Simulated scan of single mutants.
Amino acid sequence: MTTTRLIVWRHGNTDWNRDGRVQGQTDVPLNDLGRQQAVDAAELLVRLRPDALVASDLTRAADTAAALAALTGLPVRPDERLRERHFGLWQGLTMAEVAEQRPDEHARWKAGETVIGGDVETLDDLGKRVAEGLQSAADLVPAGGTVVVATHGAAARQGVGHLLGWAPEMLRTLRALQNCHWAELTFDGSRGWQLAAYNVGPFSERPVPPPV
């Protein structure tokens, strides 16, 4: 059975990741640590011999993908569907500030509710959007090929879960991907999409705040 491989790769560290600040779709660049993380991860991912490379058009994901492009010679195809969850009025705040200034919305977020308020994108909309981008990326390669997709933490988890058809309560059992770590999914005609590995990366980190 011919199996297609999809690697869903979270971007490297940013100053807002470091400070626990909500990024959402704010275009925050990688910091020095994030750029080194991308290089370290790319040195492993190149061994998978990817056939295509796709990234969110936000700088932190595109620049993460560029580290792998430099080793493979592949172009990075941008796809705005792979952007992070839009966090609306939360963007730019720390999570402590969100909890203080928007306590009802924060409580709904903590409870895993799909609709939060504050112009935050719903989990259903996020999952559908990112899963469409992931499927389009997989469709770029022939059966048996490998595609690497550089995206974001919340986007990766929700998109992967939607692609797998997981219920929301099951998806909440997955911890966040660490910066520059990835999930590996496989697809074949008889079994569909399956999760082969999760939170794989070249280094270990201390636990990080939820990906926002």
Rank of each mutant, 00 (worst) to 15 (best):
Q37E: 15
L134Y: 00
G34H: 01
T122F: 00
P78M: 07
T59P: 06
L123C: 11
A61F: 05
G153E: 00
F187A: 12
L74I: 10
L123H: 09
L134H: 02
L163S: 03
P210W: 05
L74G: 09
E43T: 15
L82D: 02
N13H: 12
L164N: 06
G153W: 04
A61P: 06
E121M: 05
A42T: 01
G127D: 01
L58G: 02
P142E: 15
P202E: 05
N17Q: 04
R10M: 00
Q194E: 12
P202R: 03
M170R: 15
L174I: 08
W166F: 13
A155P: 02
S190G: 13
P78S: 06
D19G: 07
V22N: 03
T2I: 15
V149I: 10
G112K: 00
D40H: 12
G24Q: 02
A61W: 06
W90Y: 07
P29N: 11
V148D: 02
P142L: 15
A70W: 12
T114D: 12
R60P: 07
W182T: 06
A137M: 05
V120F: 05
R60W: 10
M170V: 15
L58P: 00
R60C: 09
G159P: 04
V46H: 08
L48P: 02
L74C: 11
A66S: 10
H162N: 14
P75L: 01
R81W: 06
W182C: 04
W9Q: 04
R77W: 13
F87Q: 04
F203Y: 14
A99P: 07
E205Q: 11
G144T: 11
H152D: 01
T59L: 10
E113V: 11
D119A: 14
V141F: 11
L45C: 03
T151N: 08
V76R: 00
Q36T: 14
V120N: 00
G165S: 08
T4D: 07
G144E: 13
D19N: 09
A155V: 03
A138S: 05
T64C: 09
H106A: 15
V54E: 10
D139N: 14
M95R: 10
V130N: 06
I116S: 05
A70F: 12
S136N: 14
W182S: 02
A138M: 00
V8P: 05
E100F: 10
G161Y: 01
G34T: 07
